[in-house]
Design a protein around this nucleic acid. Structure first.
Lengths: 219, 219
DNA sequence: CTACTATTCAAATAGTCACTTGAGTGATGT
DNA sequence: ACATCACTCAAGTGACTATTTGAATAGTAG
């Protein structure tokens, strides 16, 4: 080893951080966090070409953030462990805390209105037992089909206009989506609250819920 | 805003990760974690030129990982909050868990021998009260002078040969250094154990100890 | 005001990264 | 064996990053 162990270690740590330093790879991670998937599906979901997605996925694998296995013709990628999710989330927290730009974007998602506190997963689980809560899964139907919180109703943003009038005015609604970098749930909550409904966001998304060891259902 | 809020958010998160994606910046962060410092001191400690260090520091500030204030002629940088430290540490954990190369380097630091479990900060605090433990601060004297664990003795790696024979064979020694990316403490522990002494590493380093709200002393 | 110090900025360099294109590889079905 | 599918590799382009150099700026001391 020609360089010092210290420098070699820092190089490795930097490799992990570098893997997280491109939006394309963050999108891929968000998708993989929904559940393991092949390259083509991930490329579709993220809008990347297949070759490009493949190369990003290999970068993530080199950094130890995802793992892959071959299944017939396909190569299936998954998060290597829950720490990857924790790392994605901590980056989000640091960015939200320290970057004015992030706050501006989040405020924009809430249309200037103050977003209500989000609902913790513990709180939602308790409400679920009581039965006094409506859960909206704001992800695309195919992701909902793969796995969702039991009892959740799949409602995309486009559906909201149609569905909002059918909801009892006082009823409590909790919306969730993909996880660390979820944006849909903000928008859904904003739209629902504009109509006077009592809607809040779930803290985290499906991957975090599952990671807590809570139940999920497939269609 | 011409791009979607989602893309804008991911761009910001990627900015945070990118700030951590260069070894030079990780070194700077490690130094800043010891305590706030000016540009020249940080450049000295990391071996960077002043202009280069200044630019890296600005990248860290743009990412919200450090903050700065002017003090007379100097600009003093500090970690913006404890989450920065948590983020550095989580990256280390992920790398240690998932990258074979990191394990190889750490094994090399222990000279092939299995490193003993590290001592938690709680455990060390308890031992300190009992008084049955010798603490070695393995950092350079100037960093020791700025701040250290009360009762610790400043022993650099070069001092070990001289000091080891003066230690009672059964006595328990705990070594610590800079923090998330500490390497000295591994080397010190290895050297001491080769001489049959009962040495272990402290989990984390001085910044983590201080962050726990425990006492530190200056010279 | 002038000299001096600590830091930042600007411009130029070499190096690395992201994305595309087209060819190559491994597994499956005929 | 052959074709096909899902993915990976290799090479090329344009954009960004790290580092150095020298000039510019903010604050202090005389």
């Amino acid at each position: 080893m020609s360089i010092s162990p210290k420098a070699a270690l820092l190089e490795e740590y930097a490799l992990v951080a570098r893997a997280l330093s491109a939006p394309a790879r963050l999108m891929l991670l968000e998708q993989i966090a929904q559940g393991e998937r092949g390259v083509e599906a991930l490329a579709d979901k993220t809008g990347l070409t297949i070759a490009n997605a493949s190369q990003h996925l290999q970068a993530l694998r080199r950094a130890g953030l995802v793992a892959s296995r071959r299944d017939g013709k396909s190569v299936i990628y998954r998060l290597s462990d829950a720490r990857t999710l924790a790392l994605m989330d901590l980056i989000r927290v640091v960015a939200e805390r320290n970057l004015a730009q992030v706050e501006r974007i989040l405020r924009g998602l809430s249309d200037g209105a103050d977003a209500p506190e989000s609902v913790t997963r513990d709180e939602l689980a308790a409400r679920l037992v009581e039965g006094f809560v409506t859960i909206f899964d704001v992800r695309p139907p195919d992701e909902f089909a793969m796995s969702h919180i039991p009892g959740a109703r799949n409602v995309t943003l486009a559906d909201l206009d149609r569905i909002a009038p059918t909801l009892a005015p006082g009823s409590e609604i909790v919306a969730y989506c993909r996880g660390p970098y979820c944006v849909y749930a903000y928008q859904a909550v904003t739209a629902l609250r504009k109509r006077g409904l009592n809607a809040r966001r779930l803290e985290g998304g499906l991957p975090e819920w599952r990671e807590d060891g809570r139940q999920v259902t497939a269609l």
